[in-house]
Structures are given as C-alpha cells and as structure tokens.
C-alpha cells in the first residue's frame, strides 16, 4: 500500500529522516516507535505532503504523494490540533469531514452512533466549540473524524497521548476491529510501548531518522522493545 523509496529530509544539511526503503502492505496495522526527534512526525508529514522531501518519494497506493493529489480521497489523518477547526462544534466538524468524503448528515449521524461510548457523553450535543474542549476531548474528536468515510489509509500521530485510561482501552478496541480487515492500513505512532505492541501487527523503530528495527509483533516484542530503549540509556551512561 505504502512504499517509501530512498526518502530523506534535511534541514540545513542535518538529516532528520533517512529511510532507504520501507513497504507497508495493505491491511497492516503498523506502529512507529521512537524517541522525540526520531522522525515519526516528519515521516507522517511527508506522507501527507505537508513538507517537501529532500530526496526520494513516497507512493501511497500507486500515487506518488508529492506529484498528484489523488491519494487524498482514500487517506485520512489526525496529527495534532491543527487538524481541527476551532470555531465549529464537534457535530459541525464531523459533518464537514463527512461532506468532504461524500457522506451526508444522516450517514455521519449513523456513523457517530458507534462512538457514543467512546465520547462518554461529553462531546456530542454539548454547547462547546472545538476550541473550548479539553485537550483529551479534542483528541477524541480528531481520532473519530479520521475514521469517517471508510478511508483506506489512516494515520494517527500519538493517538494515546492525553487520553484518559478508559478511552485508551476503547481506542485499542477500535483499532483492533481493523486487525482482520485487508482493506484498511493503519499507521500509528506512540511513545507507549505497551499500547503499540498490543494493537500493531508490526513495529518499526526509528532512531535519529533511521529505521533501526522492523519486527512483526509477537509475545516477546514488548520485552524486546523495552530492552532496546533501556540499552540506549545504558550505552549513554557508559559513554559519559
């Protein structure tokens, strides 16, 4: 589904991302793990053509993202609050996204029924604009909106951060429903190793812009990852 070819992104000669090759097949739930500055958000921004690659390119379902806009109809994302429109109510925002994806209001209402427990009665029919919602509730809106209109590729940057514990569990369940769906590819970045190993079928570890690990999730993946990151700390203390 997604093919990355010798992709680099440099800021003033400093390479912040350097992926020689990466292929994410259709239907996979792929987790992206790495410390701050590892290049996760940079990669997502390149995938969404929000920044320009220094070299190389990304192909999303046969569409090269920086050449054509044809990837937009089947791709959706929630990266940060700049994907929300502050002066709309949550309903209006969902309707807006729905209309962009060819759904009318009834379709959107129907879609939202599945998320009533996810919203915990706090979001729909409230009297607040998105800008006045708490960070956690804003995030819920953004995540749900990215599932509207049956996109084929869903990109979520740190979806678990800022969510309350029960919503984290609900989100894991929600992502889990896509596990056996060969149509939908999910890309999720997270700092929470436990969550990401639980829901993802494959984990790609980025470090300083490079892929350092690429593993299919198994029983021992969590231990492996914890080992990998604590090893880093050990190495650092040795150097000091």
């Amino acid at each position: 589904m997604i093919q990355v070819n010798s992709l680099t992104k440099k800021y003033k000669e400093v390479a912040v991302l350097n992926i020689d090759s990466l292929e994410i097949p259709s239907g996979e739930i792929c987790g992206l793990v790495g410390n701050n500055g590892a290049g996760k958000t940079t990669f997502f921004s390149l995938l969404l053509d929000l920044i320009k690659a220094s070299t190389g390119h990304i192909i999303n379902n046969q569409v090269q993202v920086d050449m054509s806009e044809d990837w937009k109809p089947f791709t959706s994302a929630f990266i940060d609050e700049s994907f929300l429109i502050g002066y709309l109510t949550p309903e209006e925002y969902f309707y807006f996204i729905g209309e962009l994806r060819g759904l009318n209001q009834q379709d959107v209402d129907l879609f939202l029924q599945n998320f009533e427990d996810f919203f915990h009665g706090e979001i729909l029919q409230g009297k607040k604009y998105l800008r006045d919602l708490s960070k956690g509730n804003q995030k819920k809106v953004g995540i749900v909106a990215s599932f509207i209109g049956e996109p084929k590729v869903i990109i979520l940057d740190e979806p678990f951060a800022n969510l309350d514990p029960s919503t984290q569990i609900r989100l894991k369940k929600l992502i889990g429903t896509y596990k056996d769906n060969p149509e939908v590819t999910l890309l999720i970045s997270s700092h929470d190793l436990a969550h990401v190993t639980e829901v993802c079928q494959r984990i790609v570890v980025l470090n300083k812009g490079q892929i350092v690990k690429d593993i299919q999730t198994s029983e021992r993946t969590l231990r492996d990852l914890e080992g990998f990151f604590s090893e880093e700390i050990l190495n650092e203390t040795l150097v000091d």
Binding site: L48, D49, L50, E69, K72, P73, T75, S76, A77, I79, D80, S82, F83, L84, I85, G86, I97, L100, R101, G149
Partner: peptide, 13 residues
C-alpha cells in the same frame, strides 16, 4: 491558518 494542514491533507479540491 490554524487548521491549514487539515485543509491540505483532507479530500479537498
């Protein structure tokens, strides 16, 4: 401007 990334990545002509 505050939600330009959304406009640039959504299904918008």
């Amino acid at each position: 401007s505050s939600y330009y990334p959304l406009m640039m990545s959504q299904n918008i002509r």
